[in-house]
Amino acid sequence: MGMGMTTSKGTIMTDWTDDFLVRALIAGVGLAVVAGPVGCIVVWRKMAYFGATLAHAALLGLAFGFILDTAPIIAVIAVCMLLSAALVGLERRRTLATDTILGILAHGSLALGLVVLAFLETVRVDLMAYLFGDILSVSWADIAWIYLGGALVLAALAVLWRDMLSITLHEDLARVDGIPVERRRFLFMILIAVIVAVAMKIVGILLTVSMLIVPAAAARPVSSSPEQMAILSAVIGALSVLGGLVGSLTWDTPAGPSIVVTATTLFLLSYLSRFRAQKG
């Protein structure tokens, strides 16, 4: 942590591509625009804990990435997909409740990730950066990953959107209508996995889920259609990134948490405005 914070005051804004703040903003907004609509479905389908589980498992993916010497983002996505498959398999047996299974997978994989990382003596991982994010240190290569992954997720979401709405409203009705429910659900889990892998670098593992949940929840009181809520949550997410970065620069606070604090503030404002509108 503490990266860039001290040097920020001395940065000269001659070449804007060198400015870490610009990179942070571009990266953060890119994430927010994708996390918003996906987060809406996460909120509607009550998958918040699932997102958290994948975020915890991301550390294990990171460890495997070091061992196998692959791009961390690929390893994280792979581990998240394995975990999604494990969840679907365990859910079918019906002997344990879903939240219990998720709890086991989340903490088991986080712990395993930490243990595996401890064995890798040649690698020194800045754990704090992965847990709480390091948005001020994103590179142009990171941004390329974010926008590539983000574009893929948005394209897939556009195709899945209608079916996901039907499944969310009533799974059996969707099945009778001929929608391949299980396949759609698994595809959607993969989308979350991609977002987790991308978001890890920016807001960190522990705050990734908040980028999915908080803007979507903040959009709910001011939305009257699913699409409106998706777009508004993307906007609220982007505003949170902007507000968080400005706040971080002004008060020298950690950037990732500042973004989440801004999003939470917007959430509270949104609910209060609705509450007052109902009273008046």
Binding site: L165, T168, L169, R220, S225, P226
Partner: peptide
């Protein structure tokens, strides 16, 4: 189906629901 409980977290109007 039996009573369909519609969750309030998903904002959707009747017409859009039918169009889906």
């Amino acid at each position: 189906p039996q009573v369909v409980a519609v969750d309030e977290t998903l904002p959707i109007k009747v017409e859009r629901f039918l169009a889906l």
